[in-house]
Computed example of a mutant assay.
Amino acid sequence: MLRVAVVGASGYIGGELLRLLLGHPRVTVTVATSGRHAGKRVDGPHPNLRGTTDLTFLDPGRLAAAKDQYDVLFLATPHKETMGRMPEYLSLADQVIDLSGDFRLRDPQVYERHYGVPHTAPELIPGFATGLPEWHRKEIRGSDRISVPGCMATAGVLALRPLSEAGLIHGEVQVDARTGSSGSGVSAGSANLHAERSGAMRIFAPNSHRHQAEITQATGLPVRMTATGVEAVRGVQVLCRVSLTDGADERAVRRAYREAYADEPFVRVVAQKRGLYRLPEPKILSGSNYCDVGFDIDEESRTALVVGALDNLVKGGSGNAVQCLNVRHGWPERLGLEFTGLHPN
């Protein structure tokens, strides 16, 4: 059994990592860290784990002393802080899978522009494989350092890249992203109190959300992105408005998706003419590692609406990380990720 540690395990992403890894048939969770909850049971902040584990939180300061207890580190640690501690993390485990934003962007200047601080470990960036198996499986197989993309970035990249690769898009792409409250994390502050969030559709990033840079990096497309918080707890949905190249029609678009994702276990093409769920809908993906992608074409204007949807805590974070672990070790990619979502939900 592979021994894993989850650093920053008391947050929402950390809790999802624990949920998935505790049910993984080839993994043993040996360490879960939390400064605030050190010494307490993990099923305190994660009550859904009651009866599945007796694990207690380890103080992060004792992680080095426990290094003989794990082989892989999952980092559910804050942006801007993770890069400063990355040399330490890399010295503690054979493999590191990072879910922070600090090693997603390849250009340190782009990182500084979108995160507001200089990157303190730019020399480490090239050593990280992008943790999106659908487009980086080969690199993940050979890498001991993996950086998992952001949730809205994952949905946007999976929705747009097949069309970009096929040369079916030209000009600027407008991305309208919607996300549930869990995307703000467990310590989101007063802006996410129920009294403030309930019933609201808050545009919290009118322009240049940091995931915009990830989508541009992955697709080569000029992207302009807006992000809105909606009343859902889980879920991301991105609506991407694109201009189609000459000759690009519905058949060409559908073919691009089918060729890109025909053998992918966790991407489904959902683009139907009618029906309640004819385009990707995050509600039915809750708890699952699926990303649904779809499209609707306006032949008159030569434009398309491209849609991606996922659970921000699973395929948009922890599930993607576990899928990367499976790829890295040559295991079936569905291991520990078989849950299909719920309907009705």
Rank of each mutant, 00 (worst) to 15 (best):
L2Q: 12
A5M: 00
V7H: 09
A9I: 02
Y12W: 11
I13C: 04
G14E: 07
V27E: 01
G39S: 10
P47H: 10
L63C: 04
D71G: 10
T77Q: 03
G84K: 12
P87M: 00
P87Y: 13
E88P: 07
Y89Q: 04
A93H: 09
G101K: 10
V110I: 14
I125E: 11
L132A: 08
W135F: 14
L160G: 00
P162S: 02
G167C: 07
G171C: 08
V173G: 01
V186K: 12
V186A: 13
G189E: 06
A195G: 11
E196R: 13
A205Q: 07
N207G: 00
H209R: 06
H209G: 15
I215H: 01
T216A: 14
Q217E: 15
R224D: 09
M225W: 03
V238I: 08
A256R: 07
Y257C: 00
E259R: 13
Y261R: 01
D263M: 03
A271Q: 13
L276V: 09
N289Q: 14
V293G: 08
V293L: 10
L305C: 06
V306E: 08
N312W: 01
V314H: 06
G316F: 06
N320Y: 00
C324P: 08
F339E: 14
H343W: 11
P344H: 12
